[in-house]
Amino acid sequence: MPAEDPTTDQGTGRPAHVSGFASFVGRPNAGKSTLTNALVGSKVVITSSKPQTTRTVVRGIVHRPDAQLILVDTPGLHRPRTLLGERLNDLVKTTWAEVDIVAVCFPANEKIGPGDRFIVNELGKVRRTIKIAVATKTDLASPERIGQHLLDIQALGVETGTEWAEIVPVSAVAGDQVKLLEELLVSMLPEGPQLYPDGELSDAPEEAIVAELIREASLEGVRDELPHSIAVVVEEMGLREGRPEDKPLLDIHANLFVERDSQKGIVIGHKGARLREVGSAARQQIEALLGTPVYLELRVKVAKDWQRDPRQLRRLGF
């Protein structure tokens, strides 16, 4: 009688453990970040009602006894207008070539448009990666609309020569079919060991996640032109010395950079009221994520036209 292979599950013939990377892509505000957070079960990626808020590739990690699924969140691919935009697009395309699965997100409450076609055509240049389509935000669309949307996604695949391994409707907000999507993604991963320790939700450094949470808070409720113009740099972050062990306090000093003096006024608000709201909202999110009381100091600075200046982009981490 042959010896059992310890690397496979004898009941199913599946590998005992699989691991790999999946990337959610789509035009800005397609629901990629919300879906990443829903799958990971914690807030690791900033979400905002403003499009184009994700700038860094944050990996959310889904831990299971039989699998480790690492989710790579990318900026929304778009036709670039600035040097920053070009760099973000390069980042997306590099990511696509390095992951096992690319999941293209198409919001169900919006018709497929030129932006979606542009992305799927670009994706067609990536050969070996498995491609699936995700109809997001199904809680915002009627059953008839969702049905038509799925047919439109199928047609877009045929038109662009893209073979969808799966087309899945989900609502990250309502939790509909999120578990099904997880199972499908895991079923497509190669055999492999655990890549990250148990309990780790992201491999982004804490300073990077804190900076993103501050930027998210600063975007809520401000004018449409600001999302592209705000960058956050955490200058200092560390536990305050001399505190008792049972009463730690994390000191965070961060700078918010905008491109013009007029934008600085918008972010600060009348007599500093807006900046205080931003600080309070960001502090609550950071405390919830890190589990430690936080003292947060924010300063707003002008870095003139930083999105078009290579030297300033480097200084701000792009």
Rank of each mutant, 00 (worst) to 15 (best):
I153P: 01
A208W: 02
W164F: 15
H228P: 00
M188N: 08
E225V: 10
W164I: 06
E159T: 13
V222H: 10
E200D: 04
G199L: 10
G192F: 05
K179Q: 10
K179E: 13
A231P: 09
V120M: 13
E163C: 09
L195W: 08
S187P: 00
P169R: 02
R145F: 06
Q148T: 11
G161F: 08
L189V: 09
P143A: 09
S202G: 04
V178G: 02
S171P: 02
N121Q: 14
I130F: 06
E220I: 11
I153Q: 03
R128Q: 14
P205D: 14
A141M: 04
H149C: 07
H228C: 00
D176G: 00
R127N: 07
P197R: 15
V120W: 13
S218G: 14
L184Q: 12
L123N: 11
L219D: 05
V126W: 00
G157I: 06
V126E: 09
V126Q: 09
G161S: 07
G192R: 10
E122I: 00
R127A: 11
R215Y: 00
I132D: 01
A208D: 09
R128E: 14
K125Y: 00
T162H: 08
V186T: 05
A172N: 10
G157P: 07
M188L: 15
A208L: 15
G157F: 07
G147L: 09
Q177A: 03
Y196H: 14
V234E: 06
G175H: 05
Q194K: 14
